[in-house]
Amino acid sequence: IAGFMNSLQQFQKDKINEEIVELLQVYLDMEDYTMENAKKVCGNVAGLLAWTRAMVTFFGINKEVVPLKANLAIQESRLRAANNELSKAKAQLAEKQDLLDDAEMCKKKMQTASALIDGLSGEKFRWTEQSKEFKEQINRLVSDVLQLAGFLSYCRPFNQNFHDLLLKDIWEEELRSNKIPFTETLNIVSSLISMRKVQELPTDDLSVQNGIIVTKASRYPVLIDPQIQGKAWIKKKGSKNTLQVSNST
Rank of each mutant, 00 (worst) to 15 (best):
W51T: 01
T52P: 01
E22G: 00
W51F: 15
V21N: 03
E19W: 10
I20L: 11
K40M: 10
Y33H: 07
A89C: 12
L23C: 08
G43N: 13
K96P: 01
F59N: 11
T52V: 08
E18L: 10
E64R: 09
E19Q: 14
V26W: 03
R80V: 07
A82M: 00
L86E: 03
E31L: 03
V26E: 13
N84T: 08
A70R: 12
N17K: 08
N62L: 05
V41Y: 10
E76C: 02
E19A: 13
A103R: 08
G60K: 12
L100T: 01
E36I: 07
D98E: 13
V26G: 06
V21R: 09
L72S: 07
A70D: 13
R53S: 08
G47I: 09
E76G: 01
M35V: 14
S77L: 14
I61Y: 09
D98V: 05
K90M: 02
G60Y: 08
D102H: 15
K40C: 08
Y33S: 08
L99V: 12
F59G: 09
D102Y: 14
N62W: 11
E36H: 12
I61D: 11
M35L: 15
N37R: 13
W51K: 01
E85A: 15
L28N: 13
A103G: 15
R80E: 15
A73K: 08
V21A: 02
P67I: 03
L49Y: 07
V65H: 08
G43T: 15
K39A: 10
I74L: 06
D32E: 13
E31T: 09
Y27P: 04
Q92L: 09
T52E: 07
K40V: 02
T34R: 06
S87T: 07
E31A: 08
R80C: 00
N17V: 05
M35Q: 14
N44I: 12
A81T: 13
S87E: 09
C42L: 04
R80Q: 15
Q75F: 00
R80S: 06
E18C: 07
Q75G: 01
T57H: 12
F59P: 05
